[in-house]
Computed example of a mutant assay.
Amino acid sequence: MVRVLFLGGLGRSGTTLLERLLGELPGVCPLGEVVHLWDRDIRDGERCGCDKPFHDCTFWRGVGEEAFGGWHNVDVDRILALRRSVERTRHVPRLAAGAVTCDLVEYANYYARLYRAAAEMSGARVLVDSSKHAALAYCLRQAAGIDLRVVHMVRDSRGVAYSWTKRVSRPEADGACEMTRYRPGRSALLWNAHNTAFGLLGRCGVPVRRVRYEELLADPRGTVRAVASYAGLDAEALDLSFLRSDPDGTEHADLRSRHSAAGNPMRFTVGAVPLRHDEAWRNELRPRQRRLVGALTAPLLGAYGYRS
């Protein structure tokens, strides 16, 4: 049985940061956003988190050989067609109701094969997949031989909305390429949909633990210990020396290069990374936009302990 810790939530909620921190723990292998591996990496050959082109990375080359006899044997078009068929947010009600199709089982088992190979290659006890997508977490319930545990990452909707308005380049892609951007109203609706879906997932028999982005930054050691324990690791025996405090009280994490397949450009950052609250939205998000996002997300904001 392969243990997979799935980090979910709407993008810009801190999943990449949590994955990077967990990736410093012995026995943990961070994989990045596996949902994008099929097209961005296998098909397009973008760079791994180790900064090598995907097909030149010895780790992922080994995973491909172990799982499929080589990446050339993977029908990417078929997997993407399956994703369009079964892994959409609009399908969550049907997935939550327990609907199982041949396409769903086929799609989930591509992930199962990849996870098993990654566990074999890394020797890790816990794999971390920061794919985020709620619909994928539902699909993975059908993956054979997977012990799925979900971390639901939540961040103040107004901070998320502001982050989605910023221009962020994707250095792993050839040429000028930026991450998707959303208007605040659109990101607020997505925030509601994704977070509601993860709340419902916990009622479907899948272990789900909620982690607030703000709590992670306020207490990185305590949060990492709690999540590691949830993943089945011995929290008391963890070496957290990569987390340190400067004399002025600033927290830092010393991060090493990892083989994350896709995701936020932060996955390429190595060395000392300051762990500080990103509160720019309080000044940079226009008051009208702040009120709009707050109004649209007010019920869940309150449920998650935020002041609307």
Score class of each variant (00 low, 15 high):
Met121Asn: 09
Ala143Tyr: 02
His152Ser: 04
Asp156Ser: 12
Ala124Asp: 07
Gly159Arg: 00
Val126Tyr: 07
Gln142Trp: 13
Val126Met: 09
Val100Arg: 10
Arg155Asp: 00
Leu95Arg: 00
Cys102Asn: 10
Glu120Ala: 12
Ala96Met: 05
Val100Met: 13
Arg116Lys: 09
Arg113Cys: 10
Tyr110Ser: 07
Ser122Ala: 14
Arg149His: 14
Arg158Pro: 06
Arg125Phe: 13
Leu104Arg: 03
Arg155Leu: 04
Ala112Lys: 09
Lys132Met: 15
Ala119Asp: 06
Val151Ala: 05
Val126Gly: 03
Arg125Thr: 14
Leu114Phe: 00
Asp129Leu: 03
Ala137Arg: 00
Arg158Leu: 13
Val150Phe: 10
Cys102Lys: 13
Tyr115Lys: 05
Lys132Pro: 08
Asp147Phe: 05
Asp129Pro: 00
Arg125Ile: 14
Asp156Glu: 12
Tyr111Val: 06
Leu104Glu: 00
Tyr138Phe: 12
Arg113Ala: 10
Met153Tyr: 06
Ala112Ser: 15
Val126Ser: 09
Ala144Cys: 14
Ala118His: 01
Ala97His: 04
Val154Ala: 03
Arg116Ser: 07
Cys102Phe: 14
Tyr107Asn: 02
Leu148Ala: 12
Gly98Cys: 08
Ala137Gln: 05
Val126Glu: 09
Asp147Ala: 12
Asp156Leu: 13
Asn109Ser: 04
His133Met: 15
Gly159Asp: 05
Arg125Lys: 11
Val151Gln: 01
Gly98Trp: 12
Arg141Trp: 11
Val128Asp: 05
Ala119Cys: 10
Tyr107Ala: 01
Tyr138Trp: 11
Gly145Ser: 13
Val100Glu: 15
Leu95Tyr: 00
Leu127Gly: 00
Gly98Ala: 12
Arg158Asp: 14
Gln142Thr: 10
Tyr138Met: 15
Val151Leu: 10
Val150Leu: 08
Val105Glu: 11
Val160Asp: 04
Ser122Leu: 14
Val105Gln: 08
Cys102Val: 15
Val154Asp: 04
Gly159Val: 02
Tyr138Ala: 06
Ala143Asn: 04
Leu148Cys: 15
Leu114Tyr: 00
Ala97Met: 08
Ser122Val: 02
Val105Gly: 13
Val154Met: 03
Ala144His: 11
Ala97Thr: 04
Tyr111Asn: 09
Gly123Thr: 01
Ser157Thr: 13
Tyr138Val: 07
Ala99Arg: 10
Ala137Thr: 04
Ala134His: 11
Gly123Met: 01
Arg125His: 11
Cys139Asp: 07
Leu104Ala: 02
Tyr138Thr: 08
Ala134Val: 12
Ala124Asn: 03
Leu136Ile: 07
Val100Pro: 13
Leu136Trp: 02
Gly98Tyr: 12
Asn109Gly: 02
Val100His: 09
Glu106His: 05
Ile146Pro: 02
Tyr115Gln: 07
Ala112Leu: 08
Val150Asp: 01
Thr101Glu: 06
Lys132Asp: 08
Val105Cys: 15
Leu148Gly: 08
